[in-house]
Deep mutational scan, measured.
Amino acid sequence: MTYKAILNGKTLKGETTTEAVDAATAEKVFKQYANDNGVDGEWTYDDATKTFTVTE
């Protein structure tokens, strides 16, 4: 399944996708990606669109 992350960081804005077996696995991948890029904020998840959003 393909999951998407939308990054609304102070220094990084954009989107990325990952293939994962479930939302929990995708969330770990996206949170690591955000952390590696200095983005730390509030996370939300929309199951209907399989989209995570982080906003700083």
Results as ranks from 00 to 15, higher is better:
A20M: 02
E56W: 10
E56T: 07
K31F: 06
D40K: 13
A20L: 02
A5P: 04
V29F: 15
N8M: 11
L7D: 02
A20C: 07
F52Q: 01
V39D: 01
D36G: 05
L7N: 00
Y45L: 02
M1C: 14
E19M: 14
V21M: 12
E15W: 14
Y45Q: 01
Y33C: 12
N8W: 11
Y45W: 03
E19S: 10
T44C: 09
L12A: 08
T25F: 08
D36F: 10
T44P: 00
Y33K: 03
K10W: 10
F52L: 00
A24G: 07
D36R: 09
Q32I: 09
G38C: 08
T25V: 09
G38H: 09
E56D: 08
K13N: 09
K28S: 08
G14F: 15
E27K: 10
E56P: 07
T44L: 08
N8K: 10
E27M: 14
N8Y: 10
D22T: 04
V21I: 13
D22E: 04
K4H: 12
K13I: 10
Y33S: 01
D36Q: 12
D47K: 09
T16K: 10
N37M: 15
D22Y: 03
F30P: 00
G9Y: 06
T18S: 05
G41H: 02
T49R: 06
V21Q: 12
A26D: 01
Y33I: 08
T16E: 05
E15F: 14
T51R: 03
T25M: 11
A48M: 10
G14M: 15
T49A: 06
V21S: 11
L7G: 02
E42Y: 12
K31L: 08
T2L: 14
E15A: 09
T2F: 11
T55W: 09
I6S: 04
V39G: 02
L12W: 15
F30I: 03
N35E: 14
V39M: 12
E42S: 10
T53P: 00
T11E: 10
D36K: 08
V54G: 01
D22H: 03
K10Y: 10
D47H: 11
A48P: 07
K10M: 11
K28F: 07
Y33F: 12
D36S: 10
E19L: 14
V29G: 03
E42G: 05
N37P: 01
E56C: 06
T17K: 08
T16S: 07
D47A: 14
K13L: 07
E56I: 07
K50L: 11
K28H: 08
A24I: 11
K50W: 05
V39E: 02
D22N: 09
V39N: 02
A5N: 03
F52E: 01
T18H: 06
G9N: 04
A5Q: 03
F30H: 00
N8C: 14
D40E: 13
N35P: 01
Y3P: 05
G38I: 04
T16W: 15
G9R: 02
A34R: 00
T17A: 08
N37W: 14
K13C: 14
K10Q: 12
V54Q: 02
G14H: 12
D36H: 07
T55P: 01
T44M: 09
T18F: 13
E15R: 06
A20Y: 02
V39L: 13
E19V: 15
Q32C: 05
V54W: 11
D46C: 08
A24E: 13
A24Q: 12
Y45G: 00
W43I: 04
T25K: 06
K50Y: 09
T18E: 03
I6F: 06
G14C: 15
D22L: 03
F52P: 02
Y33A: 03
T2H: 09
T44G: 06
A48C: 08
K28T: 10
T25I: 07
D46T: 04
A34G: 03
D22K: 00
N37V: 14
Y3A: 05
A23R: 12
E56V: 08
L12G: 07
D47N: 08
V39R: 01
D22M: 03
E56N: 05
T44S: 12
L12C: 15
T16R: 10
T53Y: 13
G41Y: 05
M1H: 14
K50H: 12
G9P: 02
D36A: 12
Y3K: 05
K10N: 11
D46L: 03
G38N: 09
K10D: 07
Q32M: 09
L7Q: 01
K4Q: 06
I6C: 07
D46G: 00
T11W: 13
A23H: 08
W43F: 04
F30M: 03
D36P: 01
F52V: 01
T17W: 14
T49F: 05
L7Y: 12
G38E: 05
F30T: 00
M1A: 13
N37Q: 13
G38P: 01
D46P: 00
T53I: 09
V29C: 08
V29A: 08
K28R: 12
Y3L: 03
T44H: 10
T53K: 05
L12K: 11
G41W: 06
E42H: 11
E27G: 07
E15N: 06
V54H: 04
T11D: 11
F52S: 00
D40P: 04
T18C: 15
K50M: 10
T53H: 09
D22W: 01
E19H: 13
T17M: 10
T18K: 04
F30Y: 01
F52K: 01
A26P: 00
V21Y: 11
T44Y: 11
A26F: 01
G14V: 14
T2M: 13
V54I: 13
D46Y: 04
I6Y: 07
N35F: 15
T18Y: 11
Y45T: 00
T11C: 15
N8R: 11
E27L: 15
K31Q: 08
N8V: 12
A24V: 10
K4Y: 13
V54F: 15
K31I: 07
Y3V: 05
W43V: 03
I6R: 05
A24Y: 10
A20H: 03
Y3F: 13
